[in-house]
Design a protein around this nucleic acid. Structure first.
Lengths: 197, 197
DNA sequence: TTCGTCATGTAATGGGTTACATGATTAC
DNA sequence: GTAATCATGTAACCCATTACATGACGAA
């Protein structure tokens, strides 16, 4: 996951480790903080694999900053990581990382991923509903509240995804493939608020 | 975390590994699935520490089921794990596990933990708000949507916690310490619905 | 008799973390 | 000059995972 995040950030511009950690922090802010103990070794590993390579500028060398750039091979790896279909890839934080790099994907790939995530949440939802049905009587109020709130949150998440999917579809219809939508976020917001009322 | 969950479940009644995994599944349902590859070794580790001990009944031995019971030492460990104040203990899934065993805590401990989680979410919220303020212009619509939705969800979570805290406080006032509240969950639900309208 | 699910485990691996260590640079 | 933050790294560990392996038991 960290590999994906690093590659995604390096696609935008070359950076050194410390910069990467800062950018990571303010993209996935409250949901994930990378430690240097994983960042630097991962960067090294990526270099050994040939997915990133050091950029030497006089300034940076002097200050011993190790600036990296993504390579052709790195671009391929990035694509591969984003597209992978493993079970665990749809867990909340993983999906957040993926979504953060959606702008690099083709609209139909985006839709595919959004729908995969939606299916994941849908399954979570039915798991919750099932245990709620089977066990409602014998579970304590805290567990009950936990599950009820989990259900709420999951439904809310699904509604959000549906908005994203809709926006993406509209995008495809209106502009043909390839363009980046402009204000998906705020449009989504209003829809959700309507649903809440 | 798995240790905590196992001990918590064994407090209710003695069980073998497979039963534990099932109970775990329908308590934390869509949010966590334990694999046997971690369950059994953990159970062994707990046994070696003296936190759980095997119960031998003729039936179970015949069917080679390893039923465990929690020991005095295990009860202490449980208490310790629930009370620990480490940074990572307030992350979403950890907190869910903790909440699932709230019924075993004293009301004031419950309030303390709820408030600690609240502070954690509050910090997440301000992290999000800060990056939103600093970067709103330069980030793409997907990342923006991600952050906005993250903010929404976090605020919703905090509101839920506030309900739980309020209910707990009322509990303390009305019944004095020690009693388990009856229908916290559904009471909460109605409050949230009012807030949404 | 065969399929599902009950039941227990091991080995290899993964993907991070914390704690520690070092030192340059910048702002006050 | 001193504190904060920039910058890079290592070693030990942690807590889980997947994949594999085995076999009993009940129901169709």
């Amino acid at each position: 996951m960290l590999e994906l995040a690093i590659l995604g950030l390096l696609k935008e511009r070359s950076m050194h480790g410390y910069q990467l950690s800062k950018r990571l922090e303010d993209t996935l802010g409250g949901f994930w903080r990378v430690s240097y103990g994983s960042l630097y070794p991962t960067l090294r590993r990526l270099e050994k694999q040939g997915a990133v390579e050091p950029v030497f500028s006089r300034e940076d060398v002097r200050r011993r900053k190790n600036v990296y750039r993504i390579t052709e091979k790195g671009e391929e790896l990035f694509e591969e990581l984003l597209g992978e279909a493993g079970q665990e890839s749809w867990e909340d934080n993983r999906f957040r990382v993926r979504l953060a790099f959606f702008k690099y994907l083709k609209p139909d790939t985006r839709i595919r991923l959004l729908e995969r995530r939606r299916a994941f949440l849908q399954e979570r939802l039915s798991t919750i509903k099932t245990s709620l049905k089977n066990a409602r009587e014998r579970i304590d109020s805290y567990t009950l509240s936990l599950m009820t709130h989990g259900q709420d949150a999951t439904e809310h998440d699904i509604a959000w995804l549906d908005d994203l999917i809709r926006a993406e579809r509209r995008q495809v219809r209106e502009n043909g493939e390839g363009r980046t939508p402009r204000r998906t976020a705020s449009r989504r917001r209003s829809v959700v608020q309507k649903e809440r009322a």
